[in-house]
Computed example of a mutant assay.
Amino acid sequence: MLRTPVDGTRLRILRLLREQDAAADGMTEETVAARLGLPRPVALTHLRLLTALGLLRAGRSAGRVRYRCDEVRIAEVTQLFEKGW
């Protein structure tokens, strides 16, 4: 599922969030959609899937859901793929 994401969208989202992780409160789905040129519902679907997989954390800030990478979980999943899982 993660090795071949549909047109690379999930990997693009992860890269974007990792690059922007300096912003302590994360990014909203609107921001992700705008930065990647995606319709908001498409971005939200991918964000929810990545959150369900544990690769992202979702939290509320100023009444809006914001997404951030869970670097520990990403490292765990990376190790699994490197071992040929």
Rank of each mutant, 00 (worst) to 15 (best):
A22T: 12
L55A: 04
H46C: 04
R40E: 02
R40A: 01
T51A: 11
D25V: 15
S61A: 04
A52T: 00
S61F: 04
E30K: 12
L47R: 03
A22G: 15
R40Q: 11
A24M: 14
A58I: 12
A34M: 13
E76I: 11
A22P: 09
G59E: 15
V77P: 03
A75L: 05
E29W: 09
G37K: 11
A75T: 12
L55E: 01
V72F: 10
Q20R: 13
A33L: 12
R73Q: 02
L38W: 05
G26M: 05
A52Q: 11
G26A: 12
A23T: 13
R35H: 09
L38Q: 01
Q20W: 05
L53C: 08
C69M: 00
T51W: 00
R64A: 07
A62D: 10
A23C: 10
A33C: 06
A34E: 15
P41Q: 07
A43F: 06
Q20M: 04
A34P: 01
A23V: 15
R73N: 07
T45M: 15
G37R: 13
A62N: 03
R18Y: 04
A75N: 11
T31S: 08
L38M: 05
A58F: 08
V77D: 02
V65D: 06
G59Q: 13
S61Q: 07
A33T: 11
G63P: 09
L38P: 01
G54T: 04
E71F: 13
G63Q: 11
M27F: 00
L55W: 05
R35N: 15
R57T: 12
V65L: 09
T28A: 06
L53S: 00
E30Q: 14
R35F: 12
L49F: 12
T51R: 04
M27L: 12
D21V: 05
M27H: 09
A75Y: 03
A24N: 09
V42Q: 13
L38Y: 06
C69V: 06
V42E: 14
V72Q: 13
A23P: 09
